[in-house]
Design a protein around this nucleic acid. Structure first.
Length: 900
DNA sequence: ATCCTCCCCTAC
DNA sequence: TAAGGTAGGGGAGGAT
């Protein structure tokens, strides 16, 4: 209708060419973004057409969604039928009648500042950030050191030694250190000054004497008093904690190849390079690790006067579990299979890191309480219950497997501030003031960390309708949580701007201010993120140019464009310009050297289609990729022909003014809606069971460079002078063979009927595009499988159904499989590569699903035979692990273990 | 398939 | 009386 009545239609908002925006609904952020545009409902068009004249747009303004939304009306009558309705207003009035409560709640204008000065959790978070910074800086310093390479490399090696160091009841220990007379008494750290039964103050930390009474962290003083009337309460001493923590980190850094700040009293260390004993001498290694732990504990005791416990293990999980075992004031080294068993099997699942109440409950629904129960569950069951990632993680954890590296130098992703205590608003003005203060707080934090963000999220805790006075004094009580976010056009750290958005989002919920029990502001999408892709708005041209100058396509560089744009002359249609909002006009004037066109000389297009009765000029066409063939078919014949011809004669994207002699369609993707809903013509499956075998391509590569996980793929890619996405290996034929077979286009994903209607040249384009897409897909799949196999050794395909026989490296015959294994073991005398172990495990698992247990048995037996008289324990450990995993698998699928 | 929003969960 | 913050991983489900 727009076109037929002389209008023009743009698919994307371009400030220079859009006069009105048609929408029946818009998100909050779009409403904000378009607030200076003429945003009208579609009725403006239809009714104008009907009236045969352009009606005033003002009458068709799109009103904000919030106000068009119908309100859920809870009848007042029903409410009053509840005998004593509890309202936020009455509850707040009750609490705020008390003068003291007024002082410490939002009723006090200086509340936010005072609150953050006393919140232990706030300190915990702040310290963690500071310590991360310190560790990063120290790391930087060491990097310039000559020694740094060896330090770094050793931690990336496969045989990790991870150390977890953790103070025993940190806050309590620090307090007791300066109050020796309390050392043998039950002690707790809390805000509470008196130990009364009614105190709802939390215990932040308590010593082991107190714990012997059943007292634990997080318990209220009131409850603790019930358990132990003689409990000694000491106050927080935040400054002390911080200074002791500093000493702690200074000590640790001397022993760490790499360090992750976990918290003020806790850190993770890679200490491989500090262990000199050979890997295969487990006994000597254990002794050395014990000695190292003792030395570190001694140093900490001497410097800080407090006890720390240390756990050592081959990964983070086992190090942490070891610390648990070590406490208090002890250490534990886990370096044998038996140790792993001792640490895990009998533990409660909630003792695993990352398993709290919620996940513990979900596991309980699966009848899983102990880690040993967890181990009996097949992967798919865990994933179905907990999600793909969590299921996999716990499946691995239960077996002592944990691939996670230490996290260091991670750029911050968000900044936030929230307060969920003491929030009691007497009126809306009160609420507004608080939001303003919180926005200011967030803005200051952004500024402090030198970042800006373009996404703002507000989080609200609203008292449940039936919630009475909170159990904790001025606590939030029983609440529901709500969040809403908005995307900004620009990065910001401006308090007023943040406040404006937050307040408007908050109001959109239409909650009574008296019901609000907590508020938070989160800012994300920060401007400190690494620019990895050319899509990003800022680019580090130097480094990128250096890295991939050769791979660079002669395509457009967005960055280049925008850089030059500031000097460019911009041709503007005066008609369009006059319709633009004033702010946009100004912006254009500021940015460009504007030059007004004479008049509607749309003859930019060299090839104009002459015979057009219906429409004289074509509107700017959407990119080819956006074209919906079904809609195309629905158009009047002439119009469709014209559109198709236009695509055939020029670039789909008219922004690219490069003249094209040959009618090609670049950068096009198959429109999604073309995907058939009827069965495909034929689906020629190629490659068969060899798909997975591609993950093995690294298997026989020399292990010269201590191939850290991250550089494996890159090293295999940059070898030789091949295209980046193909693999350098003697097994390359697997990949290339597939690619060639793709000449078969039988599996085109298009509806046969639609296809038939398309003109031949369009068919040709689509065919070519289809082939290209297919190639890309295969390449991506190869890469993905690599990353997957790197992620976890126990990845199991969730789709057991296999028509093709599983293969290792494209090979299925047991003799050939054996010779592959022989070759593999021979080429890695020292210890196996994790990726290869994963590949073989995967192969075996597929065999299990393929019900070829005999072959499973043969392969494992042969592996064991190959490593039978190896000195290296890692080979034996590894084959043992493969055996165990597969056996577990067999058990979960068939109900009985595998007998070799 | 990938992204985005609105959550939930966890750790200290 | 009391100071239930914060960042990041991740999932569900919808939009693109």
């Amino acid at each position: 209708m727009i076109l037929q009545h002389g209008g023009d239609y743009q698919h994307y908002l371009k400030k220079l060419s859009v006069t009105h925006i048609i929408a029946s609904n818009l998100t909050n952020s779009k409403l904000q973004e378009f607030r200076s545009y003429k945003v009208v409902r579609p009725e403006w068009i239809t009714e104008s057409v009907q009236a045969q004249q352009m009606l005033p747009w003002q009458n068709y303004r799109l009103v904000p969604r919030a106000t068009t939304q119908r309100e859920l009306l809870f009848s007042r009558d029903k409410e009053t039928s509840i005998p004593e309705k509890i309202t936020g207003e009455s509850l707040n009035a009750d609490v705020l009648a008390n003068d003291w409560a007024r002082q410490v709640s939002t009723a006090n204008p200086t509340f936010i500042k005072r609150y953050y000065e006393t919140s232990r959790l706030h300190y915990l978070s702040t310290w963690k950030e500071e310590l991360k910074d310190i560790v990063d800086k120290l790391e930087q310093k060491y990097k310039s050191d000559a020694n740094s390479l060896s330090r770094k490399n050793s931690s990336a090696a496969h045989n990790r030694i991870v150390m977890h160091v953790d103070f025993d009841c940190f806050f309590a220990s620090v307090g007791i250190k300066d109050r020796p007379h309390l050392s043998s008494l039950p002690v707790a750290v809390s805000h509470s000054k008196t130990v009364s039964e009614t105190s709802s103050s939390d215990i932040a930390s308590c010593n082991y004497v107190a714990r012997s009474f059943g007292i634990h962290n997080g318990m209220t003083i009131g409850m603790a008093k019930g358990l132990c009337p003689t409990l000694q309460v000491i106050p927080y001493e935040f400054d002390k904690y911080k200074s002791i923590s500093k000493k702690f980190y200074e000590i640790l850094f001397q022993y760490a190849d790499e360090m992750q700040a976990v918290s003020v009293d806790e850190a993770l260390l890679e200490v491989r390079s500090h262990i000199t004993q050979p890997k295969d001498d487990a006994c000597a290694q254990k002794e050395e690790q014990e000695a190292l732990a003792t030395a570190i504990r001694d140093a900490i005791r001497q410097e800080t006067g407090c006890e720390a416990s240390i756990g050592v293990g081959p990964n983070i999980l086992l190090a942490r579990m070891s610390t648990k075992r070590a406490k208090p004031a002890g250490q534990y080294v886990c370096n044998s299979k038996q140790d792993i068993e001792d640490l895990l099997a009998s533990q409660n699942v909630t003792d695993l890191p990352g398993v709290g109440y919620a996940i513990g409950d979900k596991l309980k629904e699966l009848n899983v309480t102990l880690v040993s129960d967890l181990r009996k569950k097949p992967l798919y069951e865990l994933q179905a219950k907990l999600g793909a990632k969590m299921g996999q993680t716990l499946y691995n954890f239960s077996r002592g497997i944990d691939d996670r590296p230490l996290i260091t130098n991670q750029p911050r992703q968000s900044v936030s501030a929230e307060v969920n205590w003491g929030v009691r608003f007497e009126n809306e003005e009160n609420e507004r003031g608080f939001v303003e203060g919180l926005a200011k707080e967030v803005a200051e934090r952004l500024q402090k960390h030198n970042v800006k963000g373009k996404n703002i999220t507000v989080k609200i805790l609203k008292r449940k309708d039936d919630a009475t006075q909170a159990a904790k004094h001025l606590g939030h009580g029983r609440v529901d949580a709500f969040t809403k976010s908005c995307a900004l056009g620009n990065f910001t750290d401006d308090a007023a701007l943040i406040n404006k958005h937050v307040y408007s989002m908050l109001r959109s919920f239409q909650f009574s201010s008296a019901d609000i029990r907590g508020l938070g502001i989160h800012v994300s999408k920060l401007d400190n993120q690494e620019r990895l892709s050319s899509d990003q708005e800022t680019l580090n041209f130097k480094s990128r140019n250096e890295i991939d100058a050769q791979q660079r396509q002669p395509s457009i560089e967005k960055g280049d464009l925008s850089r030059q744009a500031s000097k460019e002359i911009m041709e503007v249609d005066p008609f369009v310009y006059n319709e633009l909002p004033h702010s946009v006009q100004k912006e254009l004037e500021a940015t460009y050297n504007l030059k007004f066109k004479k008049l509607l000389a749309t003859n930019d297009e060299p090839k104009k289609i002459p015979e057009q009765p219906a429409i004289s000029t074509l509107p700017e066409l959407p990119p080819w990729s956006q074209l919906d063939p079904l809609s195309l078919l629905a158009l009047p014949n002439e119009m469709r022909d014209q559109i198709l011809k236009t695509y055939g004669t020029k670039e789909g994207d008219t922004l690219l003014k490069t003249p094209q002699d040959t009618p090609t369609i670049q950068k096009s993707r198959a429109p999604a809606s073309l995907h058939t809903k009827t069965p495909r013509l034929s689906s020629a499956k190629v490659g068969g069971g060899s798909n997975r075998s591609r993950t093995i391509t690294q298997m026989f590569q020399p292990s010269a460079s201590p191939s850290s996980r991250s550089n494996v793929s890159s090293s295999s890619v940059t070898n030789n002078n091949e295209t980046p996405t193909t693999r350098t290996s003697r097994f390359q034929y697997v990949f290339q063979g597939q690619e060639e077979e793709n000449g078969d286009d039988g599996d085109l994903p298009y509806d046969a009927e639609v296809w038939k209607e398309l003109p031949q040249d369009m068919k040709d384009e689509l065919l070519e595009e289809h082939r290209r897409l297919k190639r890309v897909k295969i390449e991506q799949k190869v890469q993905k499988e690599h990353s997957v196999s790197r992620e976890s050794a126990q990845r199991i395909d969730l789709h057991p159904y296999r028509t093709k026989e599983p293969s290792l490296q494209g090979v299925t015959d047991i003799k050939e499989v054996r010779s592959l294994l022989r070759e593999w073991v021979a080429s890695y005398k020292e210890s196996p590569e994790a990726e290869d172990v994963a590949t073989i495990t995967n192969y075996l698992i597929e065999l299990v699903y393929h019900a070829d247990l005999e072959k499973v048995r043969l392969v494992i037996a042969y592996l064991m035979y190959l490593v039978r008289d190896f000195d290296s324990s890692s080979w034996k450990l590894c084959t043992g692990q493969i055996h165990e995993t597969v056996s577990e698998m067999v058990k979960s699928v068939y109900g009985c273990p595998l007998c070799i």
